[in-house]
């Protein structure tokens, strides 16, 4: 037989009348039965193992002779009545996506704000927040140190035991901890803002300036007692919301004014990952 006769398109007919296949044999079954009996004798009776051993020997001998010196084969007739139906050609064309095609890609930002803008925006928002918080301290508690000491409670758990009078006093160490904590958190939140603002489908300014601060307040409300017991005890929620809004509006404004930079998102994921996929290579003839 030629190679051409051996191989063809899927479902293709042959001129041959028979196909050679391995001949059926029951020796593997007998061998398996013998092995099982051999082991079953351990939990039943030694004679069972003995019978199993004899069956194994006979099965090995029988199996051996199905392959040595020549492997036994049978010729199976190709029956025309059992041929598969021809494969029907489908002429309907299929639309294939081209890489990066508009309207057929994930809604991920093709342009983002630089992280530096996020950091600067975070600092500006943090400053606005701090000013309002200090104003609150001055108006309600007659001390700008009151909100600063409360904020330090995130880092210094001991502040949870401080009295209202102690919270009104200046303490350099506590001030330093609050300042560092506030700056770090402001920068981090600013960077997160810069990353997620381009992902909002619409009204980014509304989201960043108002809705996200409100969501954040909602998230903080049940957790404040764990995160900062001191603040949880002394907090004024209306002022907290106002401070959050100040952060969102000021920080968001600074970030929104920055110059956007393009990302790899303008390319398909598979292309960025270097994967092989339909449409990634020019048409070529099969090898």
């Amino acid at each position: 037989m030629s190679v051409e006769e051996h191989h063809g398109e899927p479902g293709e007919r042959t001129q041959e009348t028979h196909v050679q296949l391995p001949a059926p044999t029951f020796w593997p079954m007998i061998f398996a039965f013998g092995v099982t009996l051999l082991l079953a004798g351990l939990v039943t009776f030694w004679a069972v193992s003995l019978i199993g051993f004899i069956i194994v020997l006979r099965a090995v001998w029988g199996w051996w002779h199905t392959v040595i010196p020549h492997e036994e084969h049978e010729y199976v007739a190709i029956e025309p009545e059992h041929r598969p139906a021809p494969i029907l050609v489908e002429y309907r064309s299929v639309v294939r996506l081209t890489v990066g095609e508009e309207g057929h890609r994930a809604h991920l930002p093709v342009e983002v704000h630089p992280y530096t803008a996020g950091a600067v925006g975070g600092l500006v928002g943090g400053a606005a927040m701090a000013i309002l918080a200090c104003l609150y301290g001055l108006v309600r508690e007659h001390s700008i140190w009151y909100p600063i000491n409360l904020l330090a409670g995130v880092i210094l758990p001991g502040m949870g035991n401080a009295t209202a009078e102690q919270l009104r006093q200046f303490n350099a160490g506590v001030f330093g901890a609050a300042l560092i904590g506030h700056i770090c958190i402001s920068i981090l939140v600013g960077i997160v803002y810069a990353a997620i603002m381009p992902m909002f489908p619409k009204y980014a300014a509304l989201w960043a300036g108002i809705l996200v601060p409100l969501f954040w307040t909602g998230l903080t409300y049940p957790l404040i007692g764990i995160l900062n017991p001191a603040m949880g005890e002394h907090i004024s929620w209306p002022w907290f919301v106002v401070c959050q809004l100040a952060f969102g509006l000021c920080g968001g404004y600074v970030i929104a004014r920055s110059t956007n930079i393009r990302t790899f998102q303008s390319k398909a994921f598979v292309e960025r990952a270097g994967l092989e996929f339909p449409g990634s290579h020019p048409e070529k003839e099969p090898q």
Partner: peptide, 12 residues
């Protein structure tokens, strides 16, 4: 059928 394919296919 027992032999699966009359001709072993070539795929591309």
């Amino acid at each position: 059928p027992e032999y699966n394919f009359e001709k072993l296919p070539v795929v591309r």
